[in-house]
Every structure is written in structure tokens, then in C-alpha cells.
Nucleic acid binder design. Sequence first.
DNA 1: TTGCTCCTCACGTCACGTGAGGTGGC
DNA 2: TTGCTCCTCACGTCACGTGAGGTGGC
Lengths: 177, 177
Amino acid sequence: MRPASHKHLKVGDLSRQSGKTVRALRLYEELDLLHPVARSNGGFRLYDESALTRIRWIELLQEAGLSLHQIQSLLQAWRESRNAPEAMATVRETFSRKLAETREAIARYEMLARELEGTLEYLRTCRACRPPRTTKQDCPQCPEDHGMKQEPALVAGFHTDPGRRERIVLPVLPEGA
Amino acid sequence: MRPASHKHLKVGDLSRQSGKTVRALRLYEELDLLHPVARSNGGFRLYDESALTRIRWIELLQEAGLSLHQIQSLLQAWRESRNAPEAMATVRETFSRKLAETREAIARYEMLARELEGTLEYLRTCRACRPPRTTKQDCPQCPEDHGMKQEPALVAGFHTDPGRRERIVLPVLPEGA
DNA sequence: TTGCTCCTCACGTCACGTGAGGTGGC
DNA sequence: TTGCTCCTCACGTCACGTGAGGTGGC
């Protein structure tokens, strides 16, 4: 027979099972988002399994783009609401805004993926450029046929580089016309 | 007639045209990612249009999940490479890893969107629950038919709340069996 | 007693935000 | 001279990371 604490989790256990660092779990406590059910004699935090549900919930809301302080406010609103329909109104509002933002994020990432794909396609032709060009002088006016109208933005950015030496030169501007 | 500086952009102009804050632009300079082509007599930063290309490039790489320091390293590798094929190898490697990560991010966001949709569907039924339940007592054992097997994770997290009062109670654990 | 885990400060990091106090240029 | 913009520090923020120095419990 073991004491009643045999189903209690210590921070380390919870950390492993949740994938969060111990530091993160303590931060959630400080922000009033997650509390141990008890403390041991020695001051060790003791959790039960509901902590895992709570952590997964925090994780989902963070993925949705809420800051820990916003999650705090959402929880506060829930605690302060007197009945379910009232609580659900706030929550519904937050979630449907976040759904819209998530769809925008997906669209942005799909654009980024296309940009990366196009860039990789472009670079495939670079790999075998003969004779090998020197990036600083020749690349900006690359004569190679990359099969595209223009250079991808992810490649063009490399060329606009003033370098380190030129930075020291401080040209004096003409005074008048 | 105006002096040759008539096509120069000041930080404020560049900020407006790029959508970045002035603080961000100065940070990029500090990190060696973006430099003005010159300074005015009074010390004002003066840029040309290539700055916009560079900023768009930084922005894309940040969206792809690179930190400013990683962008710094990528630029460093480019500067140090002696020829184009060598430079492109590093760049290709970075970009194809980021493409994979972007696709994973899209998958995660699509899961999140489904989670949010399911949760909103669930909450639709809450809105009209009669008699209105009190969230703290009744919701965890909600008798309403929400048309789902189980509560969505985004709702379940609310219930696992020890609240503020209970926090003060520090139960003493039983010593033995 | 040895190991491993836990505790509480408290400072560091990253990509900026936000003043403070002062100057340039039409 | 008035306004607006620019300058350089330098501290604040957010979600943790990372020790320092000390203790619990099998």
C-alpha cells in the first residue's frame, strides 16, 4: 500500500509527459494558468492528470496566436462569468477571430512555400554554372538561363549588399544644386 | 535642379514604404543586414531603392522561421564563398530545410483550424442551454447534447481550474500507508 | 552518504517597443 | 522661430533558457 500521493506527478514527470520545460510550467503557475493540487512537505509541486489537459489547452491557444497574458484574460472572463451562455459568448468571439487569423496564416505559408519552391527551382540551374561565377561580381548580372523572367526575391536580396568595407566610407553630400 | 540626393530615402520614408518600424531598420543595421548608402551632414541615414529589396528578403526569411542571427550567418556564408555554385549549395540547403518546415507548419495550422471549427460547432449548442448553467458547477458535467462524443480540448481546459481560493490551501500529505 | 530531483532567485535572449533628451533642415 | 524628422542611448516586454546556491527523499 502506498500513500494517497501515488498518483501525483512532480514537475519533472509533468514536464516529460507534456513536453514543456520545468521553467515553462513554473511560469504558467506564476501567471495563474496552472496550479499544483498540493505541495509536498519539502515544497515539491504535486499535480494530477488534469494538469495535462490544461497544458494541452494552453498549447492550442498559443498555437492560435494568443499570448499567455491573453490566455490569462480569457480564463479570467470565464471565472467571472455567472453562467454558461455568457461565458461561451466571449469564448466564441475569441475563437472565431482566431479561426479567421489561422486561415490567413495558412494562406501566407502557402505563398511562402511557393516562393521557396520557385527559388529552389531557380537555384538548380546555378549549381552547374560554367565557368563558376564569383558571387560578388558576376551573380547580379548572371547570364545563365534560369528559365524565369526574373530573379526570385529570396535570391535578389543577397546582391543588395554594401559589404563591410564600404560602410566605413562616409560620402559628403553636395551642398547645393 | 536638386542635389544628387533627391532619390535618397530617409529612415522615415523607408519605414513607410517597407512597413517596418524605424527601430527595426536600425536594428537590421546593427546586425549588419542593411546599411544606408550614405549619411547626410546632420547624420541622417540615406538609403536607395535596393534597401526595399533587402528588407523584403529579410521579411521572407523571417517568415520562413529564420532568426535575424541566422540570416546574418547566411549572408556571411554568401560573402565568404568564392564562387556561385559554392554559395548556392549553402543557400539551397537552408531553403529546402525551410520548405519542409513550412509544409509541416501548414499541416499544423490546418489541424488547428479543424480544432477551432469543431469547438465553435460545439459552442453553438451552448448558446441556448436552458436553464442557463453556471459554468463552475454545471459545465463540467454538462447534460446538454452537443452532438459529439467528447468535449473539445479547447473547452475542456477551462474546467481544470483550481481557482484562486484553493491555491492558498496547502494540504499536508499523509506520512505513511 | 550518494544521486537525482526539486526549490527560489535572478540575469540572459530575441526582436523589437517606447520613452528621454537633443539636433537637422525646410 | 515653429514643426516635423532625425539622432543616440537605454530600459521594457514576452516566453522562456540558463546558471547559482541550496534542499528533499529513496
